[in-house]
Each structure stands twice: as C-alpha cells, then as structure tokens.
Simulated assay, not measured.
Amino acid sequence: MKLLVRNLERKTTEHEIRVLFSTYGTVTECNLVLDQETGLSKGFAFIEMPDEKEAKAAVENLNLSTVAKSKIRVKFAQN
C-alpha cells in the first residue's frame, strides 16, 4: 500500500521517515521528494508498505502527529 506523507519538516531525512514508519511494520520503499535545483526536501514523501494492516496502523497512529516540530499528515496515496 502506498502512503503519502505531507507537511514534513524540510530537514527531515529519508532515513528518519523510514525508521518512523518501520515502527508499524515493513517499509519496502521510502521516497522523499526533493527539489531538483536545491536538493532540499519539498516537505512530502511516499512510503510503500506491503501489509495492509500495518499500513492502516501507520496512517491511524502517525496522521496529525508531530515530527520535528511539524504536524504531519499521512493518508493513502491515490493511484
């Protein structure tokens, strides 16, 4: 299941996001979207979690939680 994480602190790394979501299950892919010109985070990422129960747990527990002083939003990505 593909998840969209928005409103990330610009300094948050892909590794930090992967570790955060790994608490709820297996993360097969983590893609932090970067600005091509600056190389800095655009503040959102896509996470791939193959197990539906684990993905739902991650959404329920992490949506509107505070990570690095930012209240993140987590939802299922549109295909």
Score class of each variant (00 low, 15 high):
13 T>V: 10
7 N>C: 13
67 V>H: 05
61 N>L: 07
68 A>H: 15
16 E>D: 14
20 L>R: 12
73 R>F: 09
76 F>G: 01
35 D>P: 09
52 E>M: 06
51 D>Q: 07
60 E>G: 10
32 L>G: 05
29 E>W: 00
5 V>F: 03
66 T>S: 09
8 L>Q: 04
50 P>H: 11
29 E>Y: 01
78 Q>Y: 08
41 S>M: 09
19 V>Q: 06
19 V>I: 14
38 T>H: 14
16 E>P: 11
72 I>N: 06
60 E>W: 05
42 K>C: 08
75 K>I: 00
77 A>D: 10
5 V>T: 09
53 K>E: 13
22 S>K: 02
49 M>P: 10
51 D>G: 05
35 D>V: 10
17 I>D: 01
53 K>L: 12
11 K>M: 11
2 K>G: 01
64 L>E: 13
3 L>H: 00
15 H>L: 07
30 C>S: 11
39 G>C: 11
47 I>V: 11
1 M>Q: 11
21 F>N: 07
43 G>I: 07
9 E>C: 03
1 M>R: 07
5 V>L: 04
39 G>D: 03
21 F>H: 04
69 K>L: 15
70 S>L: 12
1 M>L: 11
24 Y>K: 08
11 K>R: 15
30 C>L: 13
49 M>Q: 05
12 T>S: 05
18 R>I: 07
53 K>C: 03
35 D>W: 12
8 L>E: 01
12 T>L: 15
63 N>S: 12
18 R>A: 13
37 E>W: 09
25 G>C: 06
50 P>M: 07
25 G>L: 14
61 N>E: 15
13 T>G: 03
34 L>V: 15
70 S>Y: 07
75 K>N: 07
54 E>P: 14
72 I>D: 10
5 V>N: 04
22 S>G: 08
49 M>A: 10
3 L>W: 00
58 A>G: 10
49 M>S: 03
74 V>A: 10
5 V>Q: 01
38 T>E: 03
79 N>G: 06
53 K>Q: 12
74 V>Q: 04
68 A>F: 09
5 V>D: 01
24 Y>A: 11
59 V>S: 04
34 L>F: 08
79 N>Y: 03
69 K>A: 13
42 K>W: 05
30 C>M: 07
1 M>W: 02
38 T>N: 08
53 K>R: 11
41 S>W: 04
41 S>L: 06
20 L>T: 06
51 D>E: 12
37 E>Q: 15
59 V>R: 01
8 L>W: 05
8 L>P: 00
74 V>R: 09
14 E>V: 00
35 D>H: 09
67 V>C: 08
17 I>M: 05
